[in-house]
Nucleic acid binder design. Sequence first.
DNA 1: CCTACCGATCGGTAGG
DNA 2: CCTACCGATCGGTAGG
Lengths: 195, 195
Amino acid sequence: MAANQKTKKQIVIEAAAKLFSDKGYSAASMRELAGRVGLEQASSLYNHIRSKEEALQEICFENARKFIDGITQIEATVFEPVQQVKALIDLHIQAATNDITSVTVFNDEWRHLSEPALSEFLALRKDYEERFKEIINKGIQSGVFKEVNSTIALHTILSGLKWIHYWYKPDRSSELEIVRNDIMLLLISGLEVND
Amino acid sequence: MAANQKTKKQIVIEAAAKLFSDKGYSAASMRELAGRVGLEQASSLYNHIRSKEEALQEICFENARKFIDGITQIEATVFEPVQQVKALIDLHIQAATNDITSVTVFNDEWRHLSEPALSEFLALRKDYEERFKEIINKGIQSGVFKEVNSTIALHTILSGLKWIHYWYKPDRSSELEIVRNDIMLLLISGLEVND
DNA sequence: CCTACCGATCGGTAGG
DNA sequence: CCTACCGATCGGTAGG
């Protein structure tokens, strides 16, 4: 299959991401999903995906993988805590603007995963957060960051980025650079020692 | 009725807030809500509330009112932008820790409101955000805040406070003062001109 | 507050 | 990919 060819499964998963972000996972029905991908019957969906939750899992884990890969690369190629946190903020901004609906589901609908997927997902999230926190701690130890509690700083920064996927629409791409600059100003200089 | 007496309706609404925050509005069933307040039959709930959505409306609008009242009082009693933003951050921290489940529903489940309640709710939220933004703009004009886009600053600050209601449990009350200090350090000094 | 019940809708299966 | 269909569950009503 050519690289630019989407499988029908991919089309279904992307439509599911949009539907889940529009209505929430529980309020989204397989009948509406079928309609959105041009199928008359919900039952036809089951030729492409095994279940409603499989769609949710694919979306959640694909995004988790994206963030884990991102931080892995940053750890390997950037070596100064300030620059690492900046790169992580960029990672979140890019994820939120490149793949809007998918990140919305990843942020808001993961709790509808059932076990064992739920625990696996939370383990990935915890891994990511611990590594992010470690970077903050390095910056505190080397004196470039304020002596704040690194857990508080972590959550404030991660949470402070979670409005972007709501706000962003493709016609706002020209404003992206301003958003990026202002967010860096607000979140990084809040963290940095400035004297 | 004495002030410390809860009506059964209030008990139902509070249990609904907890249930909606545990499962999400759509996945929460009236049968489970009945069980949580000691009723055998879901139908018995309808002696206290008119519908599932009425419970959601009460929760969302009670919290909206709390934030509107809070900013109204801050506008009337605090006059310097830095102190006003600090007071607003305190307002959010207090709401998130005094009324955890209720704020969770207010933050995450309002979109399940149907019209006309949805539009009324969004109008209240917009009013609150505009007044918060106005305070930020005043601070920028008077030179105490950086020249950032005030919409971006507004969303970054509001969003940056939205992890607290997840993190907070009553046994963490002793850590609250540290959280408050660190959040002020991160969000306020990110906004302030520091030279 | 309970009994009895309703129509609607849900995710999913069997079989072709 | 559709036809036909299933058992389960939903929010809510009527009546006492």
